[in-house]
Write a protein that binds this DNA or RNA. Structure first.
Length: 194
DNA sequence: CGTTTTTGACCCGCGC
DNA sequence: GCGCGGGTCAAAAACG
């Protein structure tokens, strides 16, 4: 049984899904058919120019680039083709003016810090403290919105959270999608390991 | 005293 | 082949 990373940014105002990373078009469409984003129930499609289009009861949006689209002011979706051997990645965009490290229930060991070109704030590199677990996360401030922090999780924990299990599901690793709600505005999407 | 953080060095892929 | 940007290592320091 694999356990996904389980971010729970309890110390922040809210978090929201920022990026879909590793789905092909069919899988992505299937996912969008399954989920509803708060008061939106969007359908997604790609037009002839490969621009992402979202139609919801509230509005119709057309992306300005093939890979990114904001739905209202809540959710930004990014999409690209899945590459072979791509790791599973989740990116969370979290409003956080004070602390840069989120308490997500797992223990992490920091192993690097790097200045990133174009970003006045450095990126921090963390590994799961479990010696047999290879999950990593990167933390950096959003260049465009310095009051937000981007947390990128890579891989799946092979062990449960050492602290509280915030969300449980019998079919982690079996279904194509789990939609979890941590707080009012916190959503998480994952899919089974390949 | 075991674990984590800090920090410069090292490594590696990519574009030129 | 070289330089650059990004990712990781690892030794020492800091921490609790």
């Amino acid at each position: 049984m694999n356990y996904p990373s389980n971010p729970n940014p309890s110390s922040t105002d809210f978090a929201e899904i920022f990026k879909f990373d590793d789905y092909d078009d069919d899988a992505f469409q299937m996912i969008m058919d399954e989920i509803s984003l708060e008061d939106h129930s969007p359908t997604l499609s790609w037009n002839s120019s490969d621009k992402l289009q979202v139609t919801s009861p509230l509005q119709t949006s057309l992306a300005t680039s093939p890979t990114s689209l904001e739905i209202g002011d809540k959710t930004e979706i990014k999409k690209r083709k899945r590459h072979k051997d791509d790791p599973i990645i989740h990116v969370f965009k979290t409003k956080s003016t004070k602390e840069i490290a989120l308490d997500d229930g797992y223990k992490w060991r920091k192993y690097g810090k790097k200045p990133i070109r174009g970003n006045p704030f450095p990126r921090h590199y963390h590994k799961c403290s479990d010696p047999d677990c290879i999950v990593k996360k990167k933390i950096e401030r959003d260049t465009n919105n310095p009051e937000y922090v981007l947390t990128t999780y890579e891989g799946r924990h092979n062990h449960p959270s050492p602290s509280v299990v915030y969300c449980d599901s019998d079919d982690f690793g079996l279904t194509s999608l789990n939609t979890l709600s941590f707080q009012t505005h916190t959503y998480r999407y994952s899919h089974s390991a390949p």
